[in-house]
Computed example of a mutant assay.
Amino acid sequence: MRKFATIPPSIWQTDLKKLRGDIEAITIHYYLTTCSLSTMIGIYHLPVVFLAYETGLDPEGASKGLRRVCEAGIASYDEGTEIVWVHQMAATQVAPRLSPKDNRVPSVAKQLAALPICPITLDFYRTYRDAYHFADQPSLDEFERGFQGASYTLRSKEKEKDKGQEQDLGQGEGQMGSGGKRDTYTHARENEDQEFPYDPAKSVEEGKAFLRRLGLPAKFTDQALQRLMRGSLFPCDIENWKNEARELA
């Protein structure tokens, strides 16, 4: 059990606006953030029956509220393993990023290693892999293998999808015109200051174009592009590189 927890005031202007008017969902949200089973990284085992008991809601109401929280994109829940992930909890309770020598790195890794490998825990691993230096933690070797396997499968599917899109574009080229070009890279988040990682780019060229639009100094392009393609590039990374460039100028 955590000895303390923090609920930032900004929560009312971000996550909870999607739940306004739904008392059950708001109750569930605060319970997920502060309950006795919760961890500082926001991913932990939580049976719905326990959720209902502690909130005083009936099982149907608890399930409905949890579903609404998940539909709002605030959390994810795996019914098979009964694991919940409150998406921004690690960023607010720990930090958006940690230095490799921070004592919290092995602590976070230990908490994650205690959980079974499933889609939710792998998503958490992918999201914080670089920010929390998970790849350097021996306790997470199985997660790293699972991540690499998932990445290989995803890349294969993306190649097939890109090939199909190229064929579709070739067939519809006359309708678009010789100079027509769509900008389909709409991965920027609504609230980048909440430290969500940017969505992975669909191609290297789109990734480079996006980084240029962010004003990233050219010397950091390769490093930033690698993180972007893995889905682990944060807005704070861009700002840090900009500040570093200004200091060296």
Rank of each mutant, 00 (worst) to 15 (best):
I23E: 15
Y31A: 01
Y30Q: 02
L115V: 07
G61H: 11
P100A: 10
L66A: 09
V69D: 01
K110S: 13
E71G: 03
F50T: 15
V48E: 12
T27H: 00
I120W: 05
M89Q: 15
H87R: 13
H45Y: 14
G56M: 07
A72E: 01
R104I: 01
Y44A: 08
T33Y: 12
L19P: 10
I7R: 10
L46W: 03
L122F: 04
E54Y: 01
E54S: 09
A75D: 06
F50K: 10
T92K: 04
P47R: 03
A62P: 09
Q13I: 13
L37S: 14
S99V: 07
G61Y: 00
P47V: 06
G73R: 11
I43Q: 02
W85R: 07
Q88H: 08
K17M: 10
A91F: 00
P9N: 14
A95W: 07
A52P: 10
R126E: 13
S99C: 06
Y53V: 00
I11M: 12
A25M: 05
A72N: 07
W12G: 10
I120R: 00
T6I: 14
G21A: 09
T14R: 11
G56L: 06
A72C: 08
F50N: 12
V105M: 08
T39S: 15
Y132C: 01
L112A: 03
D15N: 11
I74Q: 04
I74E: 09
A135V: 04
I7Q: 09
Y132K: 03
L122H: 08
A25L: 05
R97Y: 04
I43G: 02
C70Y: 00
P59W: 00
P96A: 05
I28K: 06
D123N: 08
H87D: 09
V108Y: 02
T55K: 06
L115D: 02
L66P: 05
L115I: 07
T127D: 04
Y128H: 10
I11Y: 09
P116I: 06
L46M: 14
D130F: 01
C35M: 06
I23N: 12
K101G: 10
V86P: 05
V105I: 11
H45T: 13
Y44V: 08
G65W: 06
C118T: 15
A113F: 11
H29Y: 15
L122K: 07
D123Q: 10
R129D: 02
I26L: 13
T39D: 13
R20E: 15
F124I: 02
F134V: 00
S38A: 15
I120E: 07
P47Y: 05
R104F: 10
V48G: 01
T55S: 06
R97I: 05
P119R: 03
P59F: 00
F134E: 00
R67A: 15
A52M: 04
T92D: 11
S63A: 15
P106V: 07
Y30F: 15
P106H: 13
H133N: 06
Y31G: 01
C70D: 05
L46S: 08
L57C: 07
S36G: 12
V69H: 00
P59M: 02
S107A: 14
P8S: 10
Y125V: 12
T27W: 01
V94P: 08
T127Y: 01
L66E: 11
G80S: 10
M40N: 14
P96F: 02
C118L: 09
